[in-house]
């Protein structure tokens, strides 16, 4: 495992395809991402962004090619890998009939955490939900749900975080909290984010990837990207996806 050094590779994708019949959701995707990076994936609808995220987070198997996350193959070492990754999606992935604390307790049990109480309290205060920790999740607003869902994803201190449109449907205040949270944990984690929001995605990322029709159109470090050119390319691919 290369995770010891500062310049280790956290994510290595090689010729990754996901094919069913004539439909190619992913078509020979290859790239490598250094540890501690923040990758933003852009692309039109149906470009394969979510599929890529699902393959990387072991939810869907690749048809061919390999993906190695944190030095573990997504197929071979799936269950070991799952201990080290977290997912924040636009879906909260929480039980609506349990309280905030019970939800975290439930997932803490599943991940077999050592001293869950402490960790749960710490996370709840980090997402500013400690005053509502006994309330049933169903009564939460969209922003609160999303914050709790972040706490859930961070519960087991994953080294790699996957974000699937985390900003969609959030009010400005919730966006601020999410920004602050991401900034705080930025150093210790590697991020892969799927987003429609070009501005936000470019602002956060260290690497950017444009995906269209399951193929990589562009993969580049953020500081080598000219924003104007990048936007032009993005518009072009979006147009391509529509036609």
């Amino acid at each position: 495992m290369e995770t010891s050094g500062g310049l280790g590779i956290s994510l290595e994708v090689c010729g990754l395809s996901r094919v069913f019949g004539a439909r190619r959701a992913l078509d020979g995707v290859s790239f490598t991402l250094p540890e501690g990076a923040f990758l933003s994936i852009f692309g039109p609808n149906g470009a394969g962004k979510t599929t890529l995220l699902r393959v990387l987070s072991t939810l869907a198997p690749p048809s061919s090619g390999t993906a190695t996350v944190l030095g573990k193959d997504v197929l071979e070492d799936a269950s070991k890998l799952r201990e080290h990754i977290g997912l924040i999606s636009h879906n909260p992935l929480l039980y609506p009939d349990l309280s905030a604390e019970e939800n975290l307790q439930f997932f803490a049990d599943i991940y077999c955490l050592d001293c869950p109480q402490e960790r749960i309290r710490e996370l709840l205060s980090a997402v500013e939900l400690d005053h509502r920790c006994l309330d049933i999740v169903r009564t939460f607003s969209r922003g609160m749900l999303q914050r709790l869902s972040i706490a859930r994803a961070l519960l087991h201190s994953p080294e790699m975080l996957f974000l699937d449109e985390p900003y969609s449907g959030l009010d400005p205040h919730a966006v601020d909290i999410l920004d602050a949270l991401l900034a705080r944990i930025r150093k210790r984690h590697t991020f892969v984010m799927v987003s429609h929001d070009l501005e936000k995605g470019l602002e956060l990322c260290s690497h950017a990837l444009i995906l269209a029709k399951g193929k990589v159109v562009l993969f580049e470090e953020r500081n080598r990207i000219d924003v104007g050119e990048f936007k032009g390319l993005y518009r072009q691919t979006v147009g391509m996806g529509v036609s």
Partner: peptide, 15 residues
Amino acid sequence: HEKDQGCLEALLLSP
């Protein structure tokens, strides 16, 4: 219940 909030997915993500 599980499906609406994606809880099943959360379980699938866990080890």
